[in-house]
Design a protein around this nucleic acid. Sequence first.
DNA 1: GGCGAATATGAATTCATGTTCACATGAAGC
DNA 2: GCTTCATGTGAACATGAATTCATATTCGCC
Lengths: 203, 203
Amino acid sequence: MPKDTFLNLPKEKQERIIDAAIDEFATHSFHQARVTAIAEQAEIAVGSFYQYFEDKMDLFKYLMEAVVQKKISYINRDTMENKGKYPFFQLLREAFSSGIRFAKENPRLLPIGLMLMKDKALYREIFGEHVDKGIDFFRQMLEEAKAQGEIDPAIDPRLAAHMIAGMTFSLSDFVYADGKVDQDDMAIIDQMLYIVENGLKKK
Amino acid sequence: MPKDTFLNLPKEKQERIIDAAIDEFATHSFHQARVTAIAEQAEIAVGSFYQYFEDKMDLFKYLMEAVVQKKISYINRDTMENKGKYPFFQLLREAFSSGIRFAKENPRLLPIGLMLMKDKALYREIFGEHVDKGIDFFRQMLEEAKAQGEIDPAIDPRLAAHMIAGMTFSLSDFVYADGKVDQDDMAIIDQMLYIVENGLKKK
DNA sequence: GGCGAATATGAATTCATGTTCACATGAAGC
DNA sequence: GCTTCATGTGAACATGAATTCATATTCGCC
């Protein structure tokens, strides 16, 4: 949590610092990111940085929590609250589509999120022991869908959950690497879902 | 490339060093891995390390090249040489199955490979500019399969290639995380392929 | 056994970076 | 204008790790 000194800062200055941090963490891993670089780009003294945050990790956690909040804000509230009412593949579509909207509108946050997801030790340090929230989320959805007879009973929900979680990465990587956000996004999602759906659906 | 001094070492000592390196790189990223720790575990002086290798990267590249060779050795030679003759989904099965056999028989190499694949900057430094060899490989296979009418013409081979490459990760992660190599491996692969096949196949 | 070259050694050096701290600045109240 | 207090500053310090280097040891050969 940043110190009060930071929170008391004029919004403009706060933003300059956050922006600098995003730039640094988007292009370097947590360990390789330099406090000095952030201070330089934000045009503050290094000493000031430590008036605002306990240390580098303090800033990073703050950033990540903000990113998670932002990410969550992209999920349709109704879908969230009435999960039980919708068919599995529709929920999945919503999950993918909110993900791609987030990626499209926050291109600089995407690589930071990807890096974090790929560094399990770091992830654990920030969000605690339970490393695979995403996989758990999909697994649970899959188990319910299986109970509802929506998907092929032969499917192992754990394996499928891993696959789907992996796919959200592929999607992010695809979007990020090729910058293919300009082509019809929903077409990409639908193609992916089409593949997944044909694979999982009860025949 | 290690120096001659290393190559002249008795096999036993070479192995001690390589083993120590594998342990270190399996539990730490390249940047976090410590030369000192490797030297300690191998019971050589830090100075000796630099008699054997130019620097940390030199050792790491050497290791990675060995890993790639080993990985390749798991691919069925006949499949490699007569790629054109086999149907796409059979090739895919072979690719997955060689991957899982490799993972099973080299559990300590798996996390190193995973880490490398996830760190694109590092990957580039070791294998050169062309970061996505795996994706390219699948894309090419998919394009040929599409031309042969094996897969749904609506599929974008680039997207599907990303998905399949991502899936090989999911598979590795799954195998690595849960240590689920004891359950019937081919059953896992077949389930994954079943999903993929139903998703991609020409209807 | 004596000799030189190759190899082994780990303390010392270098370097990069996070963090601290003594001092500077400026705004608010008197 | 003076005092106080919060905030700003960047040089100095602490740390940790890669790399070097002067010295010791080993090994093959005569």
